[in-house]
Design a protein around this nucleic acid. Structure first.
Lengths: 257, 257
DNA sequence: AAGTGGTCTAGACCACCTG
DNA sequence: AGGTGGTCTAGACCACTTA
């Protein structure tokens, strides 16, 4: 087969061909197609996707092109490659690191495994700031979760978690309490909502009376305020979370490069 | 030329062939060689390195193999690729983002350009914890810098910066005050010390009297404590820094994936 | 033994930048 | 026009896993 000059993928006719130049390398188009199938739920988290040769045949491109597309998806943590076995859809469940997004470390350097304790789970109308973050209308139904994370039976993190009500219909305190493993794992398997990436805004704040109480610290104690906005496919925000961390014996770690 | 079976780079005879298996793909060996030349200062920050074809010929491998090595170095932020121009040694100077490692953002979302104000610069003997972090002996000569970062003429960050005395011989308050551009840029051009990556530990603390004074906040105000350990080539620690951030109108941003 | 991802090659052409 | 990085292909072989 002769190599055509920058062949446009025939099956990948761009839907909304706007004013944008919108011409991208083949492997980017392949990446987009794979991402769409991921989003559509064609392959479930933890499952293997078709082999590189399969996909190459399917898309009528060379293995190398598929490889480059998958490489990028793996770099984005959407896929996980395992030599000899296959390429798998990334998941928050069944993961060696219990909490992929939690950057907390104990002073002695070990990442403690933490106990979860649900405080309450209520359904209410979204306050304006929450609605703005979650990209829905003020007053829309949302779920508010409040919970604690404890290390060695001592509370370290107090979380308030807002979720869009439409996506989490049957979410109740019981189901949360029953579920073993990370919460994001449950969101995947029970609600089909997969957290892809998140942005955090970190500040230092003083503990108010209520917070001081649940965290068992003095009122006014400096706490780390971690506001997290999590996104699923298509950069759609699906979780707003505010955590208050007691950093007396733990710290938030970050790597720069 | 016939393709030998997993050819070991002839010029890359491993120095300390320890008990370690130590057999790695060709492109990893190439990556190591390029890194060594970077470390040796063969190419200065901001300069172009030889073209891919040049390096391929030099190392007697195909362009694709060099390409993969360079791809990883670019992903590590050691090199910067520029299509049509060449591949360049990454630098903290001449950079669009003034402070590559500073994750501070104003509440309105803009990354403010900040004014630097040096408080003092002193040479002293390393306290034990500093020596431990910098991997030198307690009592060794170190430089201690203290400075402020201001946004709109208001102090936001108070930094205490420890540097190994041996690497920063001629560092004085005058030279610091005179230098325009980011401090890490000066470290590169004046002292040949290049910061490659860093690790940060973040906590919430209460402002003590002295800190409250320089940051113009009340004593006890919650501040973000950002402890940064920076590394140069070979994972050698070369800077310990502790910043105290006033997060009343700014936050520390972080991306998770 | 068969299947998967991982490495390596050689060659073609494209996109971008500079003289 | 000539150089640089960027994309794409086709084919070979290696390393790892499973049956």
């Amino acid at each position: 087969m002769p190599a055509p000059t920058v062949p446009t993928l025939p099956s990948a006719a761009d839907a909304a061909a706007d004013a944008a130049p919108a011409f991208s390398p083949l492997y980017q188009q392949i990446k987009g197609l794979i991402m769409r199938e991921l989003q559509a739920g064609l392959w479930k988290p933890g499952e293997a996707i078709p082999s590189e040769l399969d996909l190459a045949a399917r898309f009528k491109v060379s293995q190398g092109t598929v490889r480059k597309a998958i490489d990028e998806l793996a770099a984005d943590n959407l896929l996980v490659r395992r030599q000899g076995k296959g390429t798998f859809v990334a998941t928050h469940a069944e993961q060696q690191v219990q909490y992929r997004f939690l950057r907390l470390t104990a002073d002695d350097g070990v990442t403690p495994d933490m106990e979860r304790r649900l405080i309450d789970c209520s359904r209410l109308r979204a306050p304006a700031p929450v609605a703005r973050a979650l990209d829905c209308k003020s007053g829309d139904a949302v779920v508010l979760l409040r919970r604690l994370l404890l290390a060695n039976a001592k509370p370290v993190v107090f979380d308030e978690i807002w979720l869009p009500g439409t996506l989490f219909k049957g979410l109740t305190a019981e189901r949360l309490a029953d579920y073993k493993g990370p919460m994001y794992g449950m969101f995947e398997t029970e609600f089909g909502v997969r957290m892809i990436r998140a942005e955090e805004k970190i500040r230092a704040v003083a503990a108010d009376a209520a917070t001081a109480d649940v965290l068992a610290v003095g009122e006014g104690t400096p706490l780390l305020s971690v506001e997290r906005l999590s996104f699923t496919y298509g950069d759609k925000p699906v979780e707003l979370r505010r955590g208050l961390y007691n950093t007396d014996h733990h710290f938030y770690r970050n790597a720069l490069s």
